[in-house]
Amino acid sequence: MSAISRLKYGSPNRFEAFSWYFMRVSGAVLLLVAVLHLLIMHVWYGVDAIDYRFVVGRWASPLVQVYDLALLLFAITHGVNGTRWVIDDYIHSRGWNLTLKAALYVLTVIFILMGATVIFTFDPDTSTTALNTVAAVFAR
């Protein structure tokens, strides 16, 4: 039975069927969003044109912010699910398998928060993000 029909008609492992489907859907999205990001940065502007002012200037546009968030979320979920498959393929010891995957998920949550924070809360006037506010509370 194919993964699609497993998802449609139910199966003992609906999560894996969803995961299989998700890789194809997010992959199709990334074909557009990630490849376009790459062409904009490496072909249109060129990497050497990128500096602090360039990035800050781009985030002044809400459209770029939403685009970057979509790129972040689709790329990291697609990449981490692929990494999960690789861990399951090669790491057969139950302890190591679970340890590596737990570390991967913790890292994923931290990096999504890091990316989203700098995209949406960066203030060019003070060169700080919401993290500075949080840090200031703890430093008091």
Binding site: I50, Y52, V56, L72, A75, G79, V80, T83
Partner: peptide
């Protein structure tokens, strides 16, 4: 895929540095 996801984590880290300070971000660049 593994190479790309490794770079993705590095790339999120370097772009996060924009919020830490101009000097450290430019150093990464």
């Amino acid at each position: 895929g593994l190479g790309i996801v490794l770079f993705l984590f590095l790339h999120i880290l370097d772009i996060f540095l924009v919020g830490v300070g101009e000097e450290i971000f430019e150093f990464f660049l």
